[in-house]
């Protein structure tokens, strides 16, 4: 690439003019926020790991009694695909394909995001039936502190996608709209990354031990 990279992640490129240069500050700021958020998740993971022992389980149901790996696998696939579709939206923006394709890809991402949340809620309700509730043990407290926190992030992401689609309709692809979609993309991929951690540590890790 000939032009300098202004910030980590996908750069819009100088042909986007102001949006490209504005992105340097706001995207950098958003990265910093994500790092801070990562610490929160990191500590929740650490808590989960320290609680995953007989003392933490307190004689309550264990991972094998409550985790439904089929459903979790489906959630994983849906979320991973949503990351790809968001990537398509970002590329459509980067290569100036207009707001039509961007909206389309965002719509698909939103649908997948909502699908993920539906599957997750289904999973949660099954877990509640199996007695894996936070009031049962420290282990389940740490699960319910971590996984729904990620779910809440996905929910916020869905809300954000919806707002961006509305704002694209109102304001078109103004520079600030572009940089917001850029940040939304970082957020969405970040949630994927966290989910990979959840899938391996929370589900596979606990089931394998």
């Amino acid at each position: 690439m000939k032009h300098p990279i202004l910030h980590p992640g996908m750069n819009l490129g100088p042909h986007h003019g102001q949006a490209h240069y504005d992105a340097e500050r706001v995207t950098f700021g958003f990265w910093v926020f994500l790092m801070s958020d990562l610490i929160i998740f990191g500590l929740m993971f650490a808590t989960y790991v320290t609680m995953a022992n007989p003392t933490g389980l307190a004689g309550g149901p264990g991972p094998k009694d409550a985790y439904d790996l089929t459903n979790v696998y489906a959630q994983t696939m849906v979320l991973l695909v949503s990351s790809v579709t968001f990537g398509m939206a970002s590329l459509a923006m980067r290569f100036e394909r207009g707001s039509g394709p961007i909206t389309l890809w965002l719509c698909i991402t939103l649908a997948l995001g909502l699908g993920f949340l539906t599957l997750e809620l289904l999973d949660f309700s099954n877990m509640v039936e199996a007695g894996a509730v936070p009031s049962r043990s420290g282990f389940w407290s740490s699960f319910w502190g971590l996984v729904p926190l990620h779910g809440l992030h996905v929910f916020v992401g869905c809300l954000w996608i919806s707002i961006m689609m509305i704002q694209m309709r109102i304001f078109g692809l103004a520079p600030v709209i572009k940089t917001r979609i850029l940040r939304l993309g970082l957020f969405w991929h970040f949630l994927d990354l966290i989910w990979i951690g959840i899938f391996t540590i929370v589900y596979l890790g606990a089931l394998s031990s």
Binding site: T55, L57, A58, G59, G60, S137
Partner: peptide, 8 residues
Amino acid sequence: LGRYNEGT
């Protein structure tokens, strides 16, 4: 010591 670790 044990009553806190009985899981009740």
